[in-house]
């Protein structure tokens, strides 16, 4: 899928306008040819290009990749078409505004952008809007104790999460997915999946234990 995206006009522009980032794109292509998932490193470099050069082509490439996914995330969370579209634009606008606070050593591009979309979801979804900076509820300054294991790059970390998620049985993924995307009370999840409430609760407990194992492996 990354190969197709490389052929988009924005990606071509990006390559012309930001020759210094060409090696990154080359790596991305290689990864795509090996059939590996997108190297998040490249999106990280685009965010850095937005931060340092206010690079609009890099921003366009980020927009093309992430805006439709954020929109899908917000649709899953119950937003209507118009709101999801508007908030996805809002999220990318926040990416532009906050690009200089992005630290590739601390988060993958996808994780960072996810937190922006998530904060918009809680701030904005409930209809009221105040002009409050998003993503500021976990100040960077106090995060030194949570510094990631230096031996593991964030891209590798993302890869490990992806791999570990794939190992989970489908019903556990379903529960994690529902709790991540759909803000449903347990009773509704039970109804959606057609299983007893007690089963939902125990599955959530197991899913959370898995999540803790997974996160424990990462830290």
């Amino acid at each position: 899928m990354s190969a197709l995206r490389l052929a988009s006009p924005t990606a071509r522009n990006f390559r012309t306008l930001a020759p210094s980032l060409r090696p990154a794109r080359a790596r991305l292509t290689d990864a795509a040819m090996d059939g590996k998932p997108l190297a998040t490193l490249d999106y990280s470099q685009m965010i850095v290009a937005v931060a340092r050069q206010r690079d609009r082509a890099a921003f366009g490439a980020l927009f093309d990749h992430f805006a439709p996914r954020i929109k899908a995330y917000l649709l899953r969370a119950g937003a209507d078409e118009g709101l999801a579209d508007e908030l996805a634009q809002e999220a990318l606008l926040a990416v532009w505004r906050k690009a200089e606070t992005f630290d590739a050593a601390r988060a993958t591009a996808a994780t960072w952008i996810f937190t922006i979309a998530r904060n918009l979801r809680t701030d904005r979804f409930r209809k009221e809007w105040r002009d409050v900076p998003v993503g500021d509820d976990l100040p960077d300054a106090i995060d030194e104790a949570a510094a990631p294991d230096e031996s593991l790059s964030e891209a590798e970390r993302g890869e490990r999460v992806r791999h570990a998620l794939r190992q989970l049985p489908p019903e556990q993924i379903k529960v994690i997915e529902l709790s991540f995307f759909e803000d449903q009370p347990h009773a509704e999840i039970a109804q959606t999946l057609g299983i007893p409430l007690g089963t939902v609760k125990s599955r959530i407990r197991i899913a959370m234990a898995k999540l803790r194992d997974l996160v424990g492996d990462l830290s």
Binding site: K71, A72, A107, F114, R118, G158, L165
Partner: peptide, 22 residues
């Protein structure tokens, strides 16, 4: 640390969603 790990899961899930055209 736990929240950051869970956010990573969120990042992966975001990547895996099928895109909704803008």
């Amino acid at each position: 640390r736990f929240v950051r790990g869970a956010e990573q899961v969120g990042g992966v899930m975001l990547e895996d969603l099928s895109p909704a055209p803008m």
